[in-house]
Structure formats: structure tokens, C-alpha cells
């Protein structure tokens, strides 16, 4: 359960201040697949950064799974990201020197699983995203779609409360985008995984349970 109230993010100061987010109220229930759309510069990424604890709001409150995130210090925020959040970036952002498996292994090992448990979990999750036969491939040896699926697996390895994805299909063609969207949809349905995904593609919307529309730093519909 995510509850953001009156969230604001203001860049700059004085006369040149930019209200990237301007009084956003949003709540997301467990198991929901929420899509965020809106024009470029409307504040979609900014909101996702706040939800992903990659950035702090200028004002407002954000409660994720009952935790007021403003109360966390830097180390606790990192831990929170590790244990409760999964983040998927537009450009996959895998470590190029690590194989598919090792990329996923990293956050699970940090969380304190034994090597055996990690390896098992990594294989399982790579199977889930359909990359059983890419286990020991380096990112440079995989297609964009495959890399993004590894990134999704990495985001999911620690069973996060929310999977956050900022335009995960932006660098992919329609066929690969469909694969990713189908995959996320499947994870959402089968694992009851809460998903918040930013997309400005009209045709993506059929996958979402709910569409949040943003404009000029405000939610104009779907915020609930």
C-alpha cells in the first residue's frame, strides 16, 4: 500500500523555480498495475523517483507499507530500496562486467542470502522472465529486450513491495515492448506484484489496471 499526500518537488529557487510536482495525492493498493502517463515534462519521472526513494520530496508525505519514508536516513533508504522496492530503468542499467545471473545475484547476496539460495533464486527468476538459457551471458551479448528482462528479474529478486519502471520499453521495438509488457502483466497477475510504470504510449494503456494522467506537476485523473 502506497499513500502519497500533497507531494511537491520544486527545483531551483526564487523567480526561476520549477514545480516538477505540485501537490500530488496518490494511493496505490497492493497488486495493482498502475500506469502513469502525461506529456513530456509533466512530472512522471519525478513522481517515480520519489516513489523509488531515489529523491526526496520538497514537501508532503509518502507512506510505503506503513513506513513514513521521510523518517529514514540515507542508509535506511538504501536498505529500503534493497528490500522493498524494485526499480527498472529505461536503459536497463546492468553492470556490463557481470553476467545475467551475476547482475541479479548482487542485490540478493547483499540482502544476506547464502550463495546457494541466491543461485537458486537467480535461476528461478531468470526462468520466470524467460531467460533460462542466458544465465551466463554478459549484457553486451544480449538484445535490448533481453537486457530489460534481466533488469526486471534483478528488480524482483528480493520480492519488492512495488516494482517501479520508468518507460522500460522506450528503447525497444513494438515486438520487444509487447514481450516486456506481457511479462510485467504476468508477474502482476501471478505474483500479485504491485507495479507502477511510466509510459506515454497510448497502446500500453490496455495493460494497466488504472491510468494516472499527469499534467504540469499535478495529477489530473486516476490518482484516487
Amino acid at each position: 500500500m502506497i499513500i502519497g499526500s500533497n507531494l511537491a518537488k520544486i527545483y531551483g529557487k526564487g523567480s526561476v523555480e520549477v514545480r516538477a510536482l505540485d501537490g500530488v495525492d496518490i494511493s496505490i493498493r497492493k497488486g495493482e498495475f498502475v500506469g502513469i502517463t502525461g506529456a513530456s515534462g509533466s512530472g512522471k519521472s519525478t513522481l517515480l523517483h520519489l516513489l523509488g526513494l531515489l529523491d526526496r520530496p520538497t514537501s508532503g508525505s509518502l507512506i510505503i507499507d506503513g513506513v513514513e519514508v521521510a523518517s529514514l536516513n540515507e542508509r535506511q533508504r538504501t536498505l529500503f530500496r534493497l528490500n522493498r522496492l524494485g526499480y527498472v530503468f529505461q536503459d536497463y542499467a546492468l553492470v556490463p562486467e557481470l553476467t545475467a545471473e551475476e547482475n541479479i545475484y548482487l542485490p540478493s547476496k547483499v540482502r544476506g542470502m547464502t550463495v546457494k539460495e541466491c543461485t537458486r533464486a537467480c535461476r528461478d527468476i531468470l526462468g520466470l522472465v524467460g531467460l533460462k538459457d542466458r544465465v551466463s551471458f554478459l549484457p553486451g551479448e544480449m538484445s535490448g529486450g533481453e537486457q530489460q528482462r534481466v533488469a526486471i528479474a534483478r528488480a524482483l529478486i528480493n520480492n519488492p513491495a512495488i516494482l517501479l519502471a520508468d518507460e522500460p520499453c522506450a528503447n525497444l521495438d513494438t515486438r520487444n515492448s509487447t514481450v516486456i509488457l506481457e511479462l510485467i502483466r504476468k508477474l502482476n497477475k501471478e505474483l500479485d506484484q504491485t507495479v507502477v510504470m511510466v509510459s506515454h504510449e497510448e497502446w500500453h494503456q490496455k495493460y494497466f489496471d488504472r491510468v494516472v494522467v499527469m499534467q504540469d506537476g499535478k495529477i489530473v485523473s486516476g490518482g484516487e
Binding site: T78, L82, L85, G86, Y87, A93, L106, P107, V110
Partner: peptide, 13 residues
């Protein structure tokens, strides 16, 4: 960038 991403996915500095 990679260091930033590692931190973003929860790897402590």
C-alpha cells in the same frame, strides 16, 4: 552512472 545505479538498487555505498 553505474555506481549510482548500484546504489539505486539498494547496494550500500
Amino acid at each position: 552512472k553505474q555506481i549510482g545505479i548500484l546504489q539505486a538498487i539498494g547496494i550500500d555505498r
